[in-house]
Design a binder for these strands. Structure first.
Length: 818
RNA sequence: GCCCCUGUAGCCCAAUGGCAGAGGCAGACGACUUAAAAUCGUCCAAGUGUGGGUUCGACCCCCACCGGGGGCACCA
């Protein structure tokens, strides 16, 4: 039986010692170390931790632990995103308060995190369902309300029939509810919104700060989501109507080609134009058919165009042509002005409609492609303008600015931009969330709950009918709903909706700085000390939702003077998913791997190591490609080294074997570099290399007693402490040191040991390698070139031909071009 | 349909315009062992998806195509 350490024994051994030492407590007032805020996205407490958490928290931990070793005062907090539907649904099923299920899961997860050796600061924990937390949600809501950034409006909203609540645009994915995949329908409701659209340009502009620091993918997704387009608003006179209609177009250069106008069937304008006309009943029939269609149907791209001619005409401002006005569902009521000028020759959707309705097609841009009249394919590119009066002959770009100028003088056009981003709908018709702190008074209207009355706590769940029925369960708590108007003292009603749980996570990173503060959401001084977050770690699933909302909150708080930075997360790392056999793990697929089973089998360190070593962090980890037993083997191999070292702690390393010392210093240097550039898999490979080299040095090199061996093994223990804390702690103890290795500090790297004694130079002829030779690393270009030219292999290649060119980069290579 | 990422050994992955291989998994062989496990050691394999181009030199940069993944998709 070869010596091996007891995986589970060491876990039980070190946990209480770490509890005692609390090596990751941050924020001592007199701490002289520079700060670093490393943040993992907090979990939703939906049961125990799973493989995905194991990966994410292993990666975040490497970063946090690394900066501690590098001498930083690292804040690495954790909390729970504890409001939300699963708790409520469980509560209904179990007939108990949602908090019971929630806190049971939180306790389970907390115990698992402790065991998983997460380097969290356990003094900075928060739960969003805690009234001490959501009180500040309400406080921020009221601040936004005061600034006009929180408002209520009546409009058609996304409704999930399964969750029985409304959803924000961001929470509808391809017509389906992002939570439960039900088909989302529309419902006309009076709902609360946050005015994120007031920040559109800044959300877009400030992304420049994040370039290179956030994954490009996330920035692209946010840009797409915001969806900026530039163009012009153009006024069209309408026959027999005093007011003109404004349309938005990105292609004012095609204005002469507008042969009809289309208004959104569900717009006010369409209703007005149809009312009292001969086509009113036909319009109503069409309107009803469109209204009952699901989003899924509506979004199908290959759907044939439908519409109703409203028997009305608009006048094209550039040529006075009468163009018919149609109502259709292919124009959206809430984008642009809800009406468009249709240019069938140069827009595929308009062309499809024109062909379906037998409307004329007029080519006004020559793109060099075939006539859309014949091909049925609109020529959407830019080109030379034709048949367009004053702008004929211009290129599209020049034509756009000219026509806008001309029309602007007559007050018929304005250059403008449009965005896809809509305001954030935050009211939800469910119980387990933050109550909206507004009182509705028949005399005074929407009255904010006075600050000193916060929090507006949720009514006791026993007094509430939790079953979803389309209105908020809070409405059934009569005693809670009926209250007094803070202004006129008359009887009034509380708002019964709760906030979207994304509100909770939009500022939690600020609360960590002062979780026990009862006077304000966060302590000014602490926020100045710690924020912004230096490193955020989490899944790409939040690329739009959470990250966009948090950026919006930060900017709003900045404008209120509450924070002094405008981007919350300086750097972002997106880890991939843990999958199995090529697809996402799920019970129904039968490919679920249970984290607890894996931990039981291989131990915490081996699982953490496997996660980190599996590949680049942003790639998915396929668990079927991972060998946790290989990790166990490696950890044993590293651990055994610590028992072989015979020199005493504190021995002078400079007396050690130079070869091993060079390997050690190079390895430690490379490991730092790899960790700082998020190539953790490479860092692990370097540690493995160092372990192999040390093994060799002990068995067949300088021997176990050499000081260089101690230096190497100590370096291994410290590096491993980022990834495999239990093993590292055991090694550190066996090396004769006191715990914790987490605080040992990164070894000082001696630059003079980083240069090799000799390097292999290569000699090429026409880029092909012909010879190689070991040279001094400080050899000069001319020396190396001379060596190359006198090298026998090279000489025979050259054979008296005079080289055209010789490229020399000492000490690496010489390339002779013939 | 549009945009982005990606393709290296049987597999997971390294290689920051300069020797294609750092590390691991799997495999083969040897040492130790009565034997096996564990351990230690040795070995094994691709010329970088395909075709062009730039360069003295390309896995790396550019273009096209093929395969895989992702995002957007009636947003005027």
């Amino acid at each position: 039986m070869h010596e091996a350490y007891d995986i589970h024994g060491v876990q039980e051994k070190w946990l209480p010692i770490w509890d005692e030492l609390a090596p990751f407590r941050s924020g001592r007032k007199d701490d002289p170390r520079p700060k670093k805020y490393v943040l993992d996205m907090f979990p939703y407490p939906s049961g125990d931790l799973h493989m995905g958490h194991a990966e994410a928290y292993a990666l975040g931990d490497v970063i946090a632990r690394y900066w501690v070793q590098r001498g930083f005062n690292v804040m690495h907090p954790i909390g729970w995103d504890a409001f939300g539907l699963p708790a409520e649904n469980a509560a209904i099923k179990r007939n108990e308060d949602p908090s019971v299920w929630t806190y049971e899961n939180i306790n389970t997860q907390r115990a698992s995190m402790r065991r998983y050796a997460c380097s969290f600061d356990w003094d900075r924990v928060l739960y969003t369902c805690d009234p001490e937390y959501y009180k500040w949600n309400q406080w921020i809501f009221l601040k936004l309300f005061e600034k006009g950034l929180a408002y209520r409006k009546n409009s058609a909203v996304n409704w999930c029939p399964d969750c029985q609540t409304v959803l924000a645009n961001e929470q509808v994915v391809a017509g389906l509810c992002e939570r439960c995949d039900s088909s989302v329908t529309k419902k006309k409701l009076n709902q609360w919104y946050f005015k994120i659209t007031a920040y559109t340009e800044r959300l877009l502009e400030d992304m420049k700060q994040l370039e290179g620091k956030w994954p490009d993918k996330v920035l692209t997704m946010q840009r797409n989501w915001i969806g900026k387009s530039t163009g012009a608003e153009i006024k069209f006179q309408i026959e027999d109507r005093a007011e003109s209609v404004v349309v938005y177009t990105t292609r004012p250069d095609t204005l002469h080609g507008a042969t009809f106008m289309v208004v959104a069937v569900d717009s006010e304008l369409a209703r007005e134009l149809a009312t009292g006309s001969k086509v009113e009943s036909e319009f109503n029939k069409y309107f009803e058919s469109v209204r009952s269609a699901s989003d899924i149907d509506r979004l199908a791209t290959d759907r044939t165009k439908t519409g109703v001619f409203l028997q009305r005409y608009a006048i094209n401002p550039v040529n006075g042509e009468r163009i018919p006005i149609w109502a259709s569902d292919y124009v959206l009521a809430d984008y642009g002005t809800g009406a468009i000028m249709a240019v069938p020759a140069h827009d595929q959707r308009d062309l499809d409609f024109a062909r379906a309705m037998k409307l004329p097609v007029k080519v006004v841009v020559d793109t060099g492609e075939a006539d859309p009249n014949e091909t049925g394919i609109a020529t959407e590119g830019i080109g030379k303008i034709v048949n367009s009066g004053s702008i004929s002959g211009l290129e599209s770009m020049a034509a756009i600015s000219k026509i806008i100028d001309e029309l602007a003088k007559k007050d018929q056009a304005t250059a403008t931009a449009n965005y896809r981003l809509r305001d954030w709908l935050i009211s939800r018709q469910r119980y387990w969330g933050t109550p909206i702190p507004i009182i509705h008074c028949s005399k005074c209207g929407e009255v904010p709950v006075p600050i000193e009355q916060l929090p507006v706590k949720l009514p006791d769940s026993k007094t509430v009918d939790l079953k979803p029925k389309g209105i908020s369960p809070l409405a059934t708590a009569a005693d809670w709903v009926n209250t007094q108007c803070p202004k006129c003292q008359g009887s009034a009603l509380r708002d019964t909706d709760t906030m979207d749980t994304f509100v909770d996570s939009s500022w939690y990173f600020l609360r960590y700085t002062s979780v026990n503060n009862q006077q304000s959401p966060f302590d000014d001084h602490e926020v100045k000390t710690w924020l912004p977050v230096d490193q955020y770690v989490g899944g790409v699933t939040h690329a739009i939702l959470h990250l966009l909302y948090s950026r919006f909150f930060t900017k709003a708080l900045f404008d209120m003077g509450l924070v002094d930075f405008n981007e919350p997360f300086t750097r972002l790392l997106n880890q991939g998913m843990v999958i199995m056999d090529g697809s996402a793990m799920s019970k129904s697929r039968g490919n679920l791997v249970r984290l607890s089973d894996e931990l039981e089998r291989h131990g915490v360190d081996a699982i953490r190591l496997s996660m980190v070593f599996a590949g680049p962090p942003e790639d998915d980890v396929d668990w079927s490609d991972v060998s946790p037993s290989g990790s166990v083997k490696f950890l044993n191999r590293a651990w055994r080294l610590s028992g072989d070292v015979t020199s005493k702690p504190g021995v002078n390393f400079s007396d050690g074997n130079i070869d091993l010392r060079k390997i050690t210093h190079k390895a430690l240097h490379d490991i730092s570099f790899a960790v700082e550039s998020f190539r953790f898999n490479v860092a692990v490979a370097r540690i493995m290399e160092l372990v192999n080299a040390t093994r060799k040095a002990i068995d067949s090199g300088c021997g176990a007693a050499d000081p260089s061996v101690r230096e190497a093994v100590e370096g291994i223990a410290i590096s491993l402490s980022l990834i495999a804390p239990y093993t590292a702690e055991e090694m550190w103890e066996r090396l004769g040191h006191k715990p914790s290795v987490a605080l040992a500090g990164w070894p000082k790297i001696d630059d003079s040991l980083l240069t090799a004694d000799a390097v292999t130079a290569i000699f090429q002829v026409n880029g092909k390698i012909k010879s190689r030779i070991d040279v001094q690393p400080d050899i000069s270009d001319s020396e190396l070139e001379a060596m190359a030219l006198s090298d026998p292999a090279i000489k025979s290649e050259i054979e008296g031909i005079k080289p055209k060119k010789v490229i020399t980069k000492a000490p690496k290579f010489v390339n002779i071009v013939l």
